[in-house]
Amino acid sequence: MVSEPDALRRWHDGGEMIELIVRGARRRVFVRVSGSGPALLLMHGFPASSFEWAELEPELARRHTVVAFDFLGYGATEKPADHRYSIFEQADLVEALLTKLEIQDTSVVAYDYGAIVATELVARAVKTFTLTRCVLLNHGLYARLYRPRPIQKLTLVPGIGRLLAYALNERLFTRSWSEVFSASHPLDPAVAALHYRALRTGAPGRDIHRRLLRYIPERAANRERLETAMATTEVPLSFLWGMRDPVSGAGIATELRRERPDVDLVEYADAGHCPHIELPDRVAADIIARTAPARP
């Protein structure tokens, strides 16, 4: 991934801030639109932002109108003070965004946190736009097999979590995130620094990381709804999976194949939790193969 200091600024310069009404509140949301062709919505993970798609966007934009945005509380999007973040609110934001952009049908590529939001969109059988396909990358598809990192669990503990959130600096952020990358494709500290900057920019306090992590218990509390939606949906599903992922890797892929013997699952034997950052060219090609119409 491009890691020079100006890369994040260029990413933001290529997009814009738009205003959306989400649950009655006006929210300023960062969005980039590039390329031409069928719409392709990119939904990022925790703890990053839309910038994690930077290496894939140029190739995807050759075949698609690519829409990349930052969820509420992430990246350049508004980070409201004392806010209780929710995957359900983020799904509302996605609906408002696509309505604003007048997109009536789209494929979705969603990773980690974004994949949970995509699952909620499937569960609510969204009517404001048509999901033509979901391509999902490493996430807690089966809650019982999801393995959050120890520091994430501790951050959710009252009292301790607040102290950890305030202690989180760039070094600790990089060390924690690097643990979910594969040894074959380690996290570049310069890339981590840019994502840390995006996380902190505009944050009203030092506990944004802790507030965003509330998605873990929220996902667990809604396990039945979300997993049933994935098991019964008629939306075509594809899965691109880093098998060296200690959080949601081989165990979930194995269960997925057991539950769905005919599943469209690509296993990246040499990738960890972030295959699109670790193997951007391979992942971009696999996305295009599943979402772009065949060339005449």
Rank of each mutant, 00 (worst) to 15 (best):
E4K: 10
E4C: 03
P5E: 09
W11Y: 15
D13H: 09
G15C: 01
E16H: 02
I18H: 02
L20F: 06
R23S: 11
G24P: 07
G24S: 09
R28M: 07
S36F: 03
P38L: 12
L41I: 11
G45V: 02
G45F: 08
A48Y: 12
S49Y: 08
E52T: 14
W53R: 06
W53K: 03
A54N: 15
E55R: 02
E55L: 03
L56P: 02
L56G: 02
L56D: 08
E59K: 15
E59T: 13
A61R: 12
A68H: 06
F69P: 03
G73R: 03
Y74L: 03
G75H: 00
A76C: 06
T77L: 00
P80D: 01
A81Q: 09
H83T: 08
R84H: 11
Y85Q: 06
Y85K: 07
F88T: 10
D92H: 07
D92P: 06
L93P: 00
E95R: 15
L97E: 03
K100Y: 11
K100S: 06
E102Q: 15
Q104F: 11
Q104V: 14
V109I: 11
Y113A: 04
G114D: 02
A115W: 06
I116H: 11
V117Q: 14
T119Y: 09
E120W: 09
L121Y: 09
A123K: 07
A123T: 04
K127A: 13
F129D: 05
L131W: 08
V135M: 01
N138Y: 06
H139P: 05
G140T: 09
Y142R: 13
A143M: 12
A143Y: 13
L145Q: 12
L145C: 12
Y146V: 09
Y146K: 15
Q152D: 12
K153E: 15
L154C: 04
L163Q: 14
L164S: 02
A165F: 01
L168T: 06
E170G: 07
E170D: 08
F173T: 10
F181L: 02
A183P: 02
D188Y: 03
D188T: 05
D188A: 05
P189K: 06
P189I: 07
A190S: 08
V191A: 11
L194C: 05
Y196N: 05
R197Q: 12
H209A: 10
H209N: 13
R211K: 06
L213H: 09
P217L: 00
E218M: 12
R219L: 12
A221M: 12
R223I: 07
R223E: 14
E224V: 15
R225M: 09
L226D: 01
E227R: 13
T228V: 14
V235A: 06
V235C: 04
R244C: 08
R244I: 00
E255D: 08
L256G: 01
L256R: 11
R258V: 04
E259H: 12
E259T: 14
P261K: 12
P261Q: 04
D264H: 09
D264I: 05
L265M: 04
L265D: 07
E267L: 09
Y268C: 00
A269R: 15
A271I: 02
P275I: 07
H276E: 00
H276I: 02
H276T: 05
P280H: 11
D281N: 13
R282N: 08
V283S: 02
V283P: 00
V283W: 00
T291S: 13
A294K: 10
P296W: 00
